[in-house]
Amino acid sequence: MLSQNERERYSRQILLFGEEGQERLKNATIFIAGAGGLGSPVSIYLAVAGVGRIILVDKDAVERTNLNRQILHYDRDIGRKKTASAEEKLRAINPDITVEVLDTTIDETNVHELVGNADGIVDAMDNFPTRYLLNRVALKMGIPLFHGAIRGLYGQATTVLPGKTACLRCVFPHPPPKEVFPVVGVTPGFIGMVQATEVVKYLVGTGELLANRLLLWDGERAVVEEIALERDPSCEVCGGKNQHGDAP
């Protein structure tokens, strides 16, 4: 049940989703991997939308070079753990939700415990090895992975639905080379909004997801393109099979 405060806070989106939709958001847990360029806008917008429980993981401390894009963190937070900075801001933005922060590195040994019983995983990482790990956990748990990545004025996003769509490894069998990537904050802002929109639609159960579709944002030309995806029958992670082990 929504409280009177909640009915008021979310009144404009209850017009869209109804109280039932709002309750679905309230009862959901979303795991956000990373409190950086993507994790900042994603977590802020999921918090204001009323996602009931947000788990945010990051291992880093705030650096001055983060501040052009990581809008959860302010100048005064330099040197502070990103998790502490994020927790403070998200709680201030919406005291009606639960925010849990985990100051750790996501790896093979802890990823299942960290994700817990989340309803979905937001990929706000900056590297493919951890993304592949999140992909495997999402497949195993049968929960969606909301992928996003950026570089410069370009970005990409897709939603992996285990058993239904191409997995992250089907789409990107090999990671691009590591680099210190150029970026202006508006790009993770844009892609983060695509991811957060996907999460809200998925939880409420409305609209059409980026399922088997890769959205490509070209900020240089202000063009959004889309590429159709399909499962790779030889994918080393999902083998192009659904949860029951059947070929699609």
Binding site: A149, P176, V183
Partner: peptide, 10 residues
């Protein structure tokens, strides 16, 4: 024909 590099930043 489309040719593109995945991006990896976050």
């Amino acid at each position: 024909v489309a040719v593109f590099p995945p991006v990896a930043g976050g």
